[in-house]
Amino acid sequence: MKRKAVLFLVAFVVWCLLNWPPDWQHLLAGVFVAAFCAFMTGDLFVTRPHMLKHPLRYWHFLFSYLPRFFWECLKANVDVAWRVAHPRLPINPGIVKIKTSLKTDTALTFLANSITLTPGTLTVDIDKDKGVLYVHWIDVKDKDTKKATQIIAERFEKILRKIFE
């Protein structure tokens, strides 16, 4: 029941933002649509509703993860633009393997998305049982698993562990 309530709230807020400015007809239709969505797919969207209660997690997400993420994203873009505009294409690509200690699905998804949007790396596959990510790296600096993990994943792992586990 808790899961469905969370999804109902999210769907209702999205509906209100799509139908700005709100009036009572739109709100009434939105209640029905959001209830239908929550009834159909509530169990798939939120798997652990008790995690949403802690305010400290939101604090870390807003003020520790997001600024880091956008800064790395900007660096990634400047880096790619420099490589593309260079006449000799200074790339040195390859697929390396990195290890991670995160366990839950949400944390792994966020780690993979952060890796994809940061400088020079792109997640190719996740092996959840072994805790291994295969990462395509546009400029391979080290073929060893441990050192690659240090360079690529450690910046995000600490923050994501505080938020999602």
Binding site: C73, L74, A76, N77, V80, A81, R83, V84, L89, I91, P93, I95, T116, L117, G120, T121, L122, V124, H136, I138
Partner: peptide
């Protein structure tokens, strides 16, 4: 400009998404 699928995916996804 880039030579294979994975490199193209990297450049295109990052730059076009943030842009």
């Amino acid at each position: 400009r880039l030579p294979d699928v994975y490199n193209r995916l990297q450049a295109a996804t990052k730059c076009v998404t943030l842009g």
